[in-house]
Design a protein around this nucleic acid. Structure first.
Lengths: 243, 243
DNA sequence: TAACATATAACTTATATAAGATATAACACA
DNA sequence: TGTGTTATATCTTATATAAGTTATATGTTA
C-alpha cells in the first residue's frame, strides 16, 4: 500500500495545475500578467521543471495560459487581439473577418428566473444584472443578446460603464470585475422571430433565427454568465469544428 | 546559420507526427489496430522514446490515436462505443443520452454541384454518391441528411451495403472503404422548412429548422465528405463547447 | 486428473526527474 | 546602430519508477 493506491491519488502535475488555478482564482496573477518562469514555479512547488511544464502545457491547451517563447507564460486575457473572436462563432459566409459593433439597449437589475438561476448555481430570485444589446455587422443588426450575470459578482455594474468601455464585454468583465471567462457551453435551436426581435433585427415576424444559449465559466469551472443570443443568419453562419 | 534557422524547420516530434500520419494514410495501421509501442517506434525512427511520446500525445489530443495504459496505442475508430456521439452534436434538452435510428431514403450517383465540389476539392460535375437519410429519436424524425462523397474514393457503394450495415455511417465508411473521418467543420444557419422537408420531418411548412453544413476530413486533412443536415430542434439542441 | 485460483513475468503507457542544446525576445552598452 | 548578454520557453535525450494488462506458470482443490 502506497500513496498511489489511494483513491484520491492525483499525479503531481495535476496537483500543480490545481495550485496554479488557485492562484488564478485568488487573483495572484491577473489576465495579461506573466506568471513566474517554469524554473521559479518548480522551486516554489518543490518539483522539477518538467512537471511544471506538463501542468502549464495542459493549461495552455485549455486556453487558460498562453506561452510565448522567449518572453514567458501569460494569463490569457480577452483584451488581446486574438481573443476578439474566441467566443464569437458567428462569421460571414464568405469568410471575410469582421467584428461587430454593439448597441447597448438596457442594463437592469432583476430577479433571476428559474432557467438562468439554476445554470448559474443561484437561487431562483437571486439578484442579477440583465444586459440587452444588439450586435451589428456592417451596420446591419444580426444578433440580439440577453445576458444575465450574478449581481453579487458584478457589484456596481451599470449602463454607463459598459457604454464607455471600448473593448468586448468579456474584456470589460475582466478589467472591471476581475472575472475572466475561460470556457462556455452552448445549446442551439432554430426558432421563429417574435414581434420584438423582428423589429430590432429588421426581419419579418416568424423569420427563422438561431437561438444560442450559453453558460460561461471562470476559473475553477464556476458558472458566471448566462446569455441567450438570437441571430439572423442571412449571409452569416455559426461556425464550429469538431474532432 | 543552422538547420533550425531554415524556414522549413520542424521539430523532430513534428516530423514523427508526419511519419505516423503517413503510415495511417498508407493504411499500414487501420482504425482499431494497435500501433507499435513507443519503444519500437523510437527505434524505427531513430529518436528517443520521449520524442515519439510527444508526437503520439498530440495525435491523441486530436483524437486520431487513443492511448490505453498497459495495452498500447490504437488508431481511433468510429466502430467504438465512445465514438458513437463524437460527430453527433444534436442531443436531447433534458440531457438523456439517446442514439438515433436511421432510415435510408436513397443512394444515387450524381454529378457534384458547384457548392459541394469546391469544398471537396473536386471539379464541378465530378462523380459523387448522394446519400439521403432520415434520423429519428424515439421514433420521431428529427434530422434529414443529404451526404455527398466522391465516387472515386467510395467505389462500389450502394444502397444495400448501407442498409445491411449495423453501425454508424462513418463506421461503415471505415470498414468498407478504409476512410476514417477525423475532423469536421460545420456552418449552421436557421432556415424555413420547404415542402419536402416539412413532410419528411412531420412539421408544418416554414417551420424553423437548423441547417448544418459539414465538411469532414480524413488523414492529412483531405476533405472526403460534404453533408447538409436539416434538424427539427423541438426538445433537442445542437450542443457545443468552446474554450 | 481437471478446474479454478493465485502468483509471476513481461509487456504496455504514465509519471517524474535531470541535463544540455536551441530559438526567441528584451535589454544594456559600446 | 549594432552587438553581446541574459532570461525566457522549446526541443531532445536519458533514466528511473509507477501502474495497468495479459499471458503463463504454479499451485490448490474437488
Amino acid at each position: 500500500m502506497n500513496i498511489h493506491s489511494s483513491p484520491s491519488f492525483r499525479p503531481l502535475y495535476d496537483q500543480i495545475k490545481i495550485l496554479i488555478t488557485q492562484s488564478l482564482i485568488a487573483g495572484e496573477w491577473r489576465p495579461g500578467d506573466a506568471i513566474p518562469s517554469e524554473i521559479d514555479l518548480a522551486a516554489r512547488f518543490k518539483v522539477s521543471q518538467g512537471t511544471v511544464r506538463k501542468a502549464i502545457d495542459e493549461l495552455a491547451a485549455e486556453n487558460i495560459l498562453i506561452r510565448r517563447q522567449g518572453k514567458g507564460t501569460f494569463v490569457a486575457s480577452h483584451s488581446q487581439e486574438r481573443a476578439s473572436t474566441r467566443f464569437l462563432r458567428i462569421a460571414r459566409d464568405d469568410g471575410v473577418a469582421e467584428y461587430p459593433t454593439s448597441r447597448l439597449l438596457s442594463v437592469t437589475r432583476e430577479r433571476a428566473p428559474e432557467a438562468s438561476a439554476s445554470l448559474l448555481d443561484l437561487r431562483t430570485g437571486a439578484s442579477i444584472f440583465c444586459i440587452k444589446r444588439l450586435l451589428s455587422f456592417e451596420g446591419v443588426p444580426r444578433i440580439l443578446d440577453e445576458i444575465h450575470v450574478p449581481a453579487a459578482s458584478f457589484k456596481g455594474l451599470d449602463d454607463a460603464m459598459i457604454r464607455n468601455y471600448p473593448g468586448s464585454l468579456y474584456s470589460f468583465f475582466e478589467s472591471h470585475f476581475g472575472i475572466a471567462m475561460i470556457r462556455a457551453e452552448e445549446h442551439i435551436k432554430a426558432v421563429k422571430a417574435g414581434p420584438i426581435e423582428a423589429e430590432l433585427l429588421h426581419v419579418p415576424q416568424d423569420q427563422p433565427l438561431l437561438r444560442v444559449d450559453r453558460v460561461a465559466f471562470t476559473y475553477g469551472d464556476r458558472p458566471v454568465e448566462w446569455r441567450r443570443g438570437l441571430c439572423h443568419t442571412e449571409r452569416f453562419s455559426y461556425v464550429t469544428e469538431m474532432s
